[in-house]
């Protein structure tokens, strides 16, 4: 296994071009894809998360690092799948019905992908029935719901009720987030978790996936 500290650095610096180039080169030299992910890429994203928590990195840096990670992962995923390596989890994510704000949701989706999750992004203004259909079709084990407006927060409750009505509630962990969302709200509507920002959302999802 070659030393791929440069891959770690490229992701940390959000340099997508370099990350892709190094990944291609490493694969040509028969580097082990799983080891690349575990030894360099996931630690890079963890460091990105840490830097975000201590306000050394901000949202643009998060987005760029996640994009670099995603570029490399796209090259590695077919090889990982071939070897029967499963993603950390399968996430269905979307901004709830009535709400068109998707910047935060996109950021969480990118970071989850960076964290090794397979992400099915349903977009914005997503009704409960579409979440239900996607969970069933993709056999997802996480549902992430986003809302920016207090007026659309009740759609989160409706989505959880729809999952329950479809007998899918026990099969998935439901995480909620968005500017007006709180832990108290998550508890009230029976969600499994809440995170105050995108980086914390990934930490939470990884913890729940490992539990």
């Amino acid at each position: 296994m070659p030393d791929l500290t440069s891959l770690y650095t490229a992701i940390l610096n959000g340099d997508a071009k370099a990350a892709t180039a190094i990944t291609k080169e490493a694969l040509a030299e028969n580097a082990d894809p799983l080891e690349m992910v575990n030894r360099y890429m996931v630690p890079a994203m963890s460091e990105v998360g840490k830097r975000f928590e201590c306000e050394e990195y901000f949202v643009p840096e998060l987005l760029l690092a996640a994009r670099a990670m995603k570029g490399s992962l796209e090259l590695l995923r077919p090889l990982l799948t071939e070897r029967g390596s499963e993603p950390t989890g399968r996430v269905v994510i979307g901004t709830v019905k009535g709400d068109l704000h998707d910047i935060g949701k996109n950021l969480v989706a990118s970071l989850l992908e960076g964290g090794g999750f397979e992400v099915i992004d349903l977009g914005a203004d997503v009704g409960p029935e579409r979440f239900v259909a996607a969970v069933r079709e993709k056999n997802a084990n996480f549902v992430c719901l986003s809302a920016l407006l207090t007026v659309t927060m009740p759609s989160m409750r409706k989505t959880i009720e729809a999952l329950r009505a479809a007998n899918l509630r026990d099969r998935v962990r439901v995480l909620v987030g968005g500017a007006p969302v709180t832990q108290q709200w998550a508890d009230e509507i029976g969600a499994d978790g809440f995170a105050p920002n995108a980086s914390a959302a990934v930490t939470l999802a990884r913890r729940l996936a490992a539990a």
Binding site: P60, L63, R67, D102, I103, A124
Partner: peptide, 16 residues
Amino acid sequence: DNARYLYEELVNCRRN
């Protein structure tokens, strides 16, 4: 390159 990506993801928030 990064700026194009960030602009689309972060700044162009009224795209919907």
